[in-house]
Simulated assay, not measured.
Amino acid sequence: MADKIKFAVAVLLVIAGLAGFYLLGNAALVLRVLSVIAGVVAGAAIGWTTEPGQRFAGFARDAIAEARKVVWPNRKETLQTTAAVFAFVVVMAIVLFVIDKSVETLVYNVILGWKS
């Protein structure tokens, strides 16, 4: 039950920060943005103390650890893969153009008899 109350307070703090942005419409933009940032930070701080917040923190730590294990391609591999994708796109565009023009010719000239 305490987690639900903490979560509700966290949501209310974020809403209060957003409301402050609009209520301070005549104030400087920096003050309005700080209002939003303060609401989000306060809401996150309270949400962090809940059990779902702790689970999310563990998930985030695990996700960062898994991202560090990824073997990223080097520049040469990236350029080769990009070139292959562009070549495939060009070839498919040509193939689709030929198919489209063939079907157009078949329908308009042969079936309907509309010579263009």
Rank of each mutant, 00 (worst) to 15 (best):
F97H: 05
F88R: 15
L23F: 07
W72D: 02
W114N: 10
I5H: 11
A63W: 10
A19Q: 10
E104T: 07
I37S: 09
A16S: 05
R32E: 01
I37F: 10
K101Y: 07
L24R: 08
L79I: 11
D100T: 14
E66G: 06
I15D: 01
V103A: 06
V89R: 12
D62I: 02
K6Q: 12
A87N: 14
L106S: 08
L18T: 01
E77G: 00
L106K: 10
A44R: 07
M1V: 09
V98G: 08
K4R: 12
A42Y: 00
W114Y: 10
G58T: 05
V41K: 05
G43A: 08
G58V: 06
L29C: 01
V98M: 11
D100C: 08
L13I: 01
V85M: 10
F88I: 12
A87L: 13
V40T: 02
F88E: 09
G53F: 00
I94C: 07
D62K: 15
G53C: 06
L12M: 13
T105P: 00
E77Y: 01
I111A: 10
V70Q: 08
A57N: 15
A83S: 07
A28K: 14
A2T: 09
A38N: 01
A2K: 11
L31T: 12
Q80D: 14
L23S: 06
A84N: 12
V95Q: 06
S102D: 04
S35Y: 03
V90I: 15
L18W: 00
M92W: 07
L24T: 07
E66I: 07
V110G: 03
A67K: 05
L31C: 06
L12R: 04
N26Y: 04
M92I: 14
Y108D: 14
L13V: 05
L29Q: 14
A83Q: 05
E104S: 09
A84M: 13
A27H: 07
A27M: 07
L112K: 14
N26R: 09
G39W: 00
I94Y: 06
A38S: 13
F59M: 13
L79M: 13
A44D: 02
F56I: 11
I5K: 13
Q80L: 09
Y108W: 13
I46E: 05
V85H: 08
V33F: 12
R55D: 14
V33P: 03
A44M: 14
E66C: 00
V41Q: 04
Q54D: 08
A67C: 11
A67P: 04
V33C: 05
L18N: 04
A45C: 09
K101G: 01
G113Q: 05
A19H: 01
E104V: 02
N74L: 06
W114P: 00
L112Q: 15
V41M: 11
